[in-house]
Design a protein around this nucleic acid. Structure first.
Lengths: 340, 340
DNA sequence: CTGTTAGCGCTTTCAA
DNA sequence: TTGAAAGCGCTAACAG
């Protein structure tokens, strides 16, 4: 049962291959009888048109590439899910590419996607470098990027307002009556989570609250980093009644360290995170945090890219800023004078 | 800057397109001078061979399809990661397909993958039906399946011994001195997690312990299902000092219900789960559970499939049974006489 | 309404 | 050592 082609079914149906093609694609009227014969043959032989051969002419592969740092990270897993789902809906397959946060691997995958002639690429970049994106743009491949500014390139971006959201989280704490608010920062400020810290600073300044380096320890963006940062905070001797953490993982680590030190949450110190990872809902106590749409981000990226593929959009770069939401759970409460 | 082809670079280098092809694929010796000219042209123009066109002749797409119920589920996310990683290593792209646990969507994706002429399919089926797999096998596409018996079809399977592992988990509890051991079951016994319950029963029988339907409530495989099941257990009035849950999610739900009822874990009741999901490490208390390799499963599936693609294996079905490991955390302890 | 045929970009005989 | 040319499976003029 070797490869069956359009020819086989043409012969079987007693028509020309052109006719077969036309009934398959409905790209030209075909008499009912012939159409019926063709369809019957297709069904009987079990024929699947070769989309690659088709692409050769049509210049369209109906395939998009998705490059993320790590699809096992729940955050990107959600995004990937959104992309896959919207892609399927729109008739596109998605090639899954993990960069493992290595720029060389991003580049390698881009070459591969280029060779596969994907119609577009959805990209969650690891670094600020525009090199990988530029490669794509220069070749005229539609690109959508997550959580980055478009930095002058003609690509679409889907992101949130990190600064504003960080500000809002902090303001929430301020509104709760907290004055001495610490902030657990990421290692680099040139990142999305770094901008959240800018938001923190802006909120503090807006409320006339003083900033202190001692109250802004850095962490590695993971649970362990949060633990260490919180311990550092405790050791500094500075008083604080609340913590805003630039991401949930560090917030959860911080809560653990706080509890280990005998502090109650939110009794002694309130904690607000950022991201709304799955764990946030199940942490002890459940974490109040800023949620950003993830599946929706994937969906939006697909829409943008399809618009470009279909030439519905040919203009310049577009930015789509998604709304974040503050999810109130149980790790933050009104300030109540006490120790610490 | 329109599509550039092998012709463009042939012209630029002043050679025939055949020569270009040969230097790209090193499929025939080419004089150093020509090779150099060609490579220079490729570099300068920025040429990427069209792998689809290539596939047309070579009958190989270097692409595999991965069908899972939901890549956002951490379990399948890990598997997908393993597949992607091993695939990249082996020179294969992977097309991500979520079936959303719907057999029609599995079928739809299979048709799509067939049309894309993928070299193989890695499949985590939703149902026991062999219909989807049969379609692939009949067309001679290499297939690897997760967590299912091969049921007579010529496919490879990568799985764990659920029965034995369930038995081991239960035996662990027995060895801890527990006699009255409950079991939270899935809705259907015709599933991998159902087999774990068979293992539970076997262990109980082996230890001469009686089974009771009251101690075997069903759950929907999610946290909520575990909560409800545990509550039912409590209401039954039957005494039990330990619970084996057919999966972690339900175990975590059960622990929550138990705590809400004022019971201490593992003081009053020990709990053992199955799967070792991420949450298990961070639950309160951290959950003792059976871990099954996930990324490794993905890697193994890719290996098997590549062996078939490369015709290194042409025999019949193969089963690869992976080892599970009992991860001792803090939700299970020695039996100590008390209430409940 | 239907069939013939020229490619799409590439690989690979077959000749030179 | 190199090139010409015949396809791979399909689409889409171009002719009937």
């Amino acid at each position: 049962m070797d490869k069956i082609t359009i020819k086989d079914i043409a012969k079987k149906a007693g028509v020309s291959i052109a006719t077969v093609s036309y009934v398959i694609n409905k790209s030209r009227p075909v008499s009912p009888e012939l159409a019926a014969r063709v369809n019957a043959a297709i069904k009987e032989i079990g024929y699947y048109p070769d989309t690659n051969a088709r692409s050769l002419k049509s210049k369209r592969t109906s395939t998009i590439g998705l490059i993320v740092p790590d699809n096992a990270n729940p955050f990107f897993a959600e995004i990937a899910k959104g992309v896959e789902d919207a892609g399927f809906e729109a008739g596109f397959s998605v090639i899954l590419c993990n960069s493992n946060a290595m720029i060389e691997r991003e580049l390698a995958y881009i070459d591969l996607l280029l060779s596969k002639r994907v119609d577009g690429v959805i990209f969650a970049p690891t670094s600020l470098s525009i090199q990988p994106i530029k490669r794509l743009v220069d070749l005229g491949i539609p690109v959508a990027v997550f959580y980055r500014e478009t930095s002058g390139l003609d690509v679409d971006s889907v992101r949130i307002n990190n600064l504003e959201s960080g500000q809002r989280a902090t303001q929430y704490l301020i509104d709760l009556g907290h004055r001495d608010i610490a902030c657990i920062r990421p290692l680099s400020m040139e990142t999305p989570s770094g901008q959240r810290v800018d938001g923190y600073q802006r909120a503090m300044a807006g409320a006339g609250l003083a900033l202190s380096q001692d109250l802004m320890p850095q962490g590695n963006n993971r649970i362990s980093g949060g633990e260490i940062a919180a311990r550092r905070l405790l050791e500094s001797g500075k008083r604080f009644s609340a913590i805003f953490s630039a991401n949930d993982a560090m917030a959860i680590g911080a809560m653990r360290a706080l509890r280990d030190a005998g502090l109650r949450i939110p009794g002694d110190v309130s904690v607000v995170g950022f991201d709304d990872i799955t764990l946030a809902r199940y942490s002890e106590p459940p974490l109040t945090t800023i949620a950003q749409p993830k599946q929706e981000a994937g969906t939006l990226a697909v829409q943008r890219i399809v618009e470009r593929i279909d030439k519905q959009h040919t203009g310049g770069p577009r930015e789509f800023v998604m709304e974040t939401t503050l999810i109130e759970r149980r790790s933050a409460a009104h300030y109540q004078p006490g120790e610490s």
